[in-house]
Design a protein around this nucleic acid. Structure first.
Length: 469
DNA sequence: TTAGGAATAACTCGATGCTG
DNA sequence: CAGCATCGAGTTATTCCTAA
């Protein structure tokens, strides 16, 4: 038969509730197992969710038809070679696990190819997120089947055996899914302490000047005169929001880099947090709690401690950027918070969304500056998060306080404590101080060694030195 | 000095609204 | 309607602060 598209989706109304089923074109009836799944799981879910799952299952059924020339339903209900019917569903599930890879090829190729073509230039036609959604839904469906056909109705297992059998299916299905999961394969992130491909990645949690520079370049928003092809926020469902996203993220990154805020403090900023500086010109940033502001977020950010409340002077160009964003791009949401998401309601930016900004930024760095990120090319930047900008800020600020402003170490530590919102007894400023000492000691050491080498070179023509003392 | 607590980070997964 | 972006939530590890 034309193996192509034996199964399709159909919407129907069930007791007044709109729902979706997978229709088998051969019998013109709903496929049995998806129907059971929909009935026992899908009725309590929103139509979009059910549809999401049914789309995945439908593609799976079409794939199965292509590959094995019979439907997945038939596979589950046939008798095995010994005439036992009871084990057939479980055998089918075992077979399904093997076919995860083939299914990935099928959906990645736009449901055309079932062969694993090892073409290196092969480019999936769907995004990784979609790929993972498909696999996740399919796995959930297969787990539903496992739970159903392991149960006492279909097997003679004791309840304990049922549980272990089902657990084994759950484990194996999840493992199979994990193996082919698109996002996991793209982002192989490791933490700093972990060994990556044989060699240990050693680095501070602050950024090097090269990395800082790369981030600044990537975060620069496009203007009408000049677009920035490195900016990771080029596309958006609502194209009119692209400028808002770019400016907002640029503002976020600038504030974090220049003033070392914690992420929670950043998200608590309000439009009225920018106050004219008491003594003379300039503006200051007031970091404070937002009591009574009616934060609509599920998990509103909180200040870490009482010392976090502070006043920071803002550079003029940041003030301009702030005003540009507030006046023209932020919209007019009913809440007072500075940073908003790009949905229609312009709700305050959530913790999660803010972290996604850094995920996207890291993806851009990975793409455009592989030498910084890829371990094989000598890069050490294996992850990026908002707190790393704070570390960077603290290190740089301490250095500037000592070298430019001529503070002694105690004064610099106190100043840093005040600017960064650490408590009176916090050991953190000490940490940055010792980091600076280590750094300058290293620099002095390098200078000493190279001076020595020069000296050695000069003395060399005169006489050959003996062994080391 | 250390135990415990709160915030943050890292990693997933599920659910749902939005738009071309 | 397909695909995607985004949000909510759960779990665990790590960081930072407080108080004993």
């Amino acid at each position: 038969m034309s193996a192509k598209e034996r199964f399709r989706l159909k919407r129907f109304s069930y007791h007044g509730q709109l729902s979706v089923v997978v229709i088998d074109d051969v019998t013109d009836l709903p496929a049995l197992l998806p129907l059971l799944y929909m009935q026992s799981w899908g009725l309590s879910k929103a139509i979009n969710t059910v549809q999401q799952h049914m789309v995945s299952i439908c593609q799976w059924y079409n794939y199965w038809q292509c590959k094995h020339h019979r439907s997945f339903d038939e596979m589950l209900f046939e008798t095995d070679q010994h005439g036992f019917r009871t084990l057939a569903p479980l055998n089918a599930l075992d077979a399904a696990m093997v076919d995860y890879t083939g299914f990935c090829v099928y959906i990645d190729s736009g449901q055309k190819s079932i062969d694993a073509n090892d073409d290196p230039g092969f480019k999936p036609v769907i995004a990784n997120a979609t790929h993972d959604v498909r696999l996740g839904c399919l796995t959930q469906f297969l787990l539903f089947l496992a739970r159903r056909y392991v149960s006492g109705r279909y097997t003679q297992l004791t309840s304990k055996e049922q549980r272990t059998t089902f657990d084994s299916y759950r484990f194996r299905l999840q493992a199979a899914r994990r193996d082919v999961c698109g996002r996991l394969n793209i982002r192989k992130r490791t933490t700093f302490s972990q060994v990556s491909q044989g060699h240990l990645v050693v680095r501070e949690r602050s950024l090097t000047p090269a990395e800082t520079q790369a981030i600044t370049v990537c975060a620069r928003p496009s203007t009408s005169k000049q677009t920035n092809p490195l900016n990771p926020w080029q596309r958006h469902v609502d194209q009119s929001q692209v400028a808002a996203v770019q400016i907002r993220n640029h503002l976020m990154i600038r504030i974090l880099f220049n003033y070392g805020l914690r992420l929670g403090e950043l998200l608590l900023l309000q439009t009225k947090s920018l106050v004219p500086y008491a003594s003379g010109a300039g503006n200051a940033l007031a970091i404070t709690t937002s009591e009574g502001s009616g934060d609509p977020r599920q998990a509103p950010p909180k200040l870490k401690n009482a010392w976090s409340e502070r006043l920071i002077e803002l550079a003029p160009e940041d003030v301009k950027l702030w005003e540009l964003y507030v006046d023209h791009l932020r919209g007019n949401p009913p809440h007072p918070f500075l940073l908003v998401n790009t949905r229609k309601n312009h709700a305050p930016l959530s913790m999660r969304a803010a972290q996604n900004v850094f995920d996207a930024l890291y993806a851009a760095l990975d793409q455009h500056f592989p030498a910084l990120c890829c371990v094989n090319l000598g890069g050490t930047l294996t992850t990026l998060n908002a707190h790393m900008l704070r570390f960077t800020w603290a290190t740089d600020t301490f250095e500037a306080l000592v070298e430019r402003d001529g503070c002694d170490f105690e004064a610099a530590k106190d100043r840093l404590r005040q600017l960064g919102g650490w408590s009176d007894t916090s050991p953190m400023p000490q940490k940055y101080a010792s980091r600076y000492i280590a750094k300058s000691a290293n620099a002095a050491n390098v200078r000493r060694i190279s001076a020595q080498r020069r000296l050695h070179k000069q003395s060399k023509p005169k006489q050959q030195e003996g062994g080391q003392p």
